[in-house]
């Protein structure tokens, strides 16, 4: 079983929105049609996006942390949006675990968006169908692309490498290792959706200096400390100077 997913490192994300724009650029140009916008250069611009970067402030001034938080479809292993769909337009691919919408079957009833606790489904106000992150399903299997580029557009765009992509069911994949070794977690675990996408927590960067790094630990008898200071004219090891 394969479950493709993103792992987003909140410790590294700088909130530049490059994943948002590259996502929109790739997906609005694809075979599935454009992602419509209204008033893009006017008051109250609005449009369809698969990916958003949000910003949260944690703590109280002056002890605050700014957390930039990219949010897209989590491709849940038990997606609550899929069984509620009356037409079968919303489905989870058995071969790679990607949750997709068949735009030709969607009737635009919005019920799946009600059934998603994360708010990652958005209706396209002009095409009147539900849209969501496809994990760039039209990129990752494209054999015309070099192997290194067969990744979602957001992963390719991230300048700080905060977005990792891979199969979380393969214990040796980069995402599985990241989740395992850096305490990756899922969002809203209380609803049992088992999101495939994981987040890596903020980690405080600290320099840890122990006592034995300041004082020689391999000199237990302090012998070099008790040696008489050699005279200035005395020969030293390199016969140059004694200090």
């Amino acid at each position: 079983m394969t479950q493709l997913a993103l792992v987003i490192d909140l410790n590294v994300c700088v909130g530049c929105h490059a994943c948002v724009t590259s996502c929109k650029e790739w997906n609005t140009s694809g075979a599935a049609g454009f992602m419509s916008d209204d008033n893009p250069y006017d008051r109250d611009p609005t449009g369809t996006f698969f990916n958003r970067v949000q910003t949260f402030e944690v703590g109280e001034f002056p002890n605050t942390q700014t957390v930039h938080f990219p949010k897209s479809c989590l491709h849940c292993e038990d997606p609550p949006c899929v069984p509620v769909c009356p037409t079968g337009a919303s489905y989870k691919r058995p071969e790679d675990g990607i949750v997709l919408v068949d735009y030709d079957k969607c009737i635009g009833c919005k019920y799946c968006s009600w059934a998603c606790p994360y708010g990652v489904r958005e209706i396209d106000e002009h095409q009147k169908v539900m849209k969501k992150c496809t994990l760039c399903v039209d990129r990752i299997y494209d054999t015309k692309l070099p192997t290194a580029e067969r990744k979602p557009a957001c992963v390719m765009a991230c300048p700080t490498n905060a977005r990792l992509y891979g199969d979380i069911h393969d214990p040796e994949s980069v995402v599985s290792k990241a989740i395992r070794e850096n305490a990756g977690y899922a969002l809203m675990p209380e609803w049992g959706t088992q999101p495939a996408n994981h987040y890596l927590p903020r980690r405080k960067t600290e320099m840890r200096i122990h006592e034995d790094e300041l004082e020689r630990a391999d000199n237990p008898l302090k012998i070099d400390g008790r040696l008489p200071k050699p005279g200035i004219k005395d020969p030293s090891l390199d016969d140059v100077t004694s200090w």
């Binding site: 109250d44 611009p45 609005t46 958003r52 910003t55 489904r121 958005e122």
Partner: peptide, 9 residues
Amino acid sequence: AQGFMGGSF
């Protein structure tokens, strides 16, 4: 910030 200035779905 929620990621956009205008409204969304």
